[in-house]
Amino acid sequence: MRNSNHVIGLLNFLTFLLSIPILGGGIWLSTRANTTDCLRFLQWPIIIIGVAIMVISLAGFAGACYRNTFLMYVYLWAMFLIIVALLGFIIFAYVVTDKGSGRTVPNRAFSEYRLEDYSGWLKDRVASDSYWGKIRSCIRDSKVCSKMATVIGGVPESAESFYLRKLNPIQSGCCKPPTECGYVYMNETYWTTGVGVGTNTDCSRWNNDQQQLCYDCSSCKAGVLASVKKSWRKVSIINIIILIILLIVYVVACVAFRHNRRIDNDEPYGETRMEKAQPSRIHF
């Protein structure tokens, strides 16, 4: 019995440790939401799950130390619900970020993004006028475009040097016009009209005003979706690993708790225990 309690206590301590990277992933998404991705609602489910695992693990640890059956029941049922919630969240994250990726551009190191390459609930939410206004303000306030500026010898970098840069999705989609529009590079966020302007509607939305740039472009919305997809995929990989470990820990905890219940109820466990409880002189 003592060994079983030690096992349960150790498992609860392990799940407590596992809650730290989950909570850390949620905090990292929150930081990205405030500075880069600008989507401030996606990180909360993972933060709540991380905190819940931490609290439930402490309850299970206390139940193991004090042999409190009620706390152990609460721990096992709550952990089961948390595992289901984490699994559902991982599936949801992959579903809403499934489609869409950057398009390669000839003679450019960076990719460009099209809103029509994305679909589903997340795209509809980001593209909605009411929600996009908040995202646009967040991107502008983060100064992600002004931070692109690179000065070499007192002058902006050349067009050839800029075309070799690996821009992130928001820099590519929000801070410059699409390549097909034919604008002529002056610096990272200032472009002049070329010989002709492409048919892409974003071509007419581009503005050299540093408060506007391409913040109203569909390519900017696509860049946000691409950035969110990249962030969520990183966190989801960690969550999948943790989910597998949680499932193993949960199964072992259930077996250990069942063993404790047998001992507490003084149930026979094997032939040796039965013979000691009721010795008999006749053996068949």
Results as ranks from 00 to 15, higher is better:
Arg32Ile: 09
Cys145Tyr: 02
Gly223Arg: 04
Ile46Gly: 03
Gly120Val: 00
Tyr73Pro: 11
Val55Asn: 01
Ile83Cys: 05
Asn200Arg: 03
Leu18His: 04
Val197Trp: 08
Met54Ala: 15
Leu246Pro: 00
Ile20Pro: 08
Tyr118Cys: 01
Ile248Glu: 00
Lys99Glu: 12
Lys99Gly: 05
Glu180Ser: 13
Lys147Pro: 06
Asp129Trp: 09
Asn260Pro: 02
Ala59Val: 15
Phe61Asn: 08
Ile135Trp: 02
Trp191Glu: 04
Asn265Ser: 12
Asn107Leu: 07
Cys138Leu: 10
Gly153Arg: 00
Leu164Met: 12
Tyr131Val: 03
Ala127Val: 09
Arg261Gln: 14
Val249Cys: 15
Pro177Trp: 00
Arg140Ser: 12
Ser119Gln: 06
Leu81Gln: 00
Ser236Phe: 05
Ser161Pro: 02
Leu225Cys: 06
Leu81Asp: 04
Trp121Ile: 07
Cys254Gln: 10
Tyr190Asn: 10
Thr193Ala: 06
His6Phe: 12
Tyr163Val: 01
Ala52Ile: 02
Gly50Asn: 03
Leu76Met: 15
Asn68Tyr: 01
Ser219Ile: 06
Ala159Thr: 05
Arg258Trp: 11
Asn187Cys: 08
Ser161Arg: 13
Asp117Trp: 08
Ser204Gly: 02
Ile238Gly: 07
Thr31Ser: 14
Arg67Glu: 12
Gln171Lys: 10
Asp129Arg: 13
Ala78Pro: 08
Gln171Ala: 11
Ser172Asn: 07
Phe110Thr: 01
Ala127Phe: 03
Trp232Thr: 11
Arg67His: 10
Cys254Ser: 14
Pro106Glu: 13
Tyr183Cys: 07
Ile46Trp: 04
Ser111Lys: 12
Val126Lys: 02
Met186Asn: 11
Leu115Thr: 07
Ser101His: 11
Ile170Asn: 05
Asn5Arg: 15
Met1Tyr: 14
Ser101Val: 12
Ile46Cys: 03
Pro178Met: 09
Arg262Phe: 08
Val105Gln: 09
Ser280Val: 12
Ala33Pro: 01
Thr193Phe: 06
Leu10Ser: 14
Lys276Arg: 13
Ser4Arg: 09
Glu112Asn: 03
Ile170Trp: 00
Ala85Ser: 14
Tyr269Lys: 13
Ile248Asn: 03
Lys221Leu: 10
Ile82Leu: 15
Ile238Phe: 08
Phe16Pro: 06
Arg273Gln: 11
Thr150Ser: 10
Ser30Cys: 11
Arg136Asp: 05
Cys214Leu: 11
Val55Ile: 14
Cys145Ser: 04
Val197Lys: 12
Ser204Leu: 02
Phe162Glu: 04
Ile170Ser: 04
Leu122Ala: 07
Leu243Val: 06
Pro45Met: 00
Trp191Asp: 01
His259Trp: 11
Met186Pro: 00
Thr199Trp: 07
Gly63Arg: 07
Leu167Trp: 03
Asp98Arg: 13
Val249Phe: 15
Phe16His: 05
Cys138Phe: 12
Arg103Glu: 09
Thr31Cys: 07
Val84Glu: 11
Trp77Phe: 15
Trp132Asn: 00
Met274His: 08
Tyr73Met: 13
Ile56Glu: 03
Arg281Asn: 14
Leu243Ala: 06
Thr15Phe: 15
Ala93Asp: 03
Asp98Ile: 06
Asn187Tyr: 13
Val155Gly: 02
Ser111Met: 09
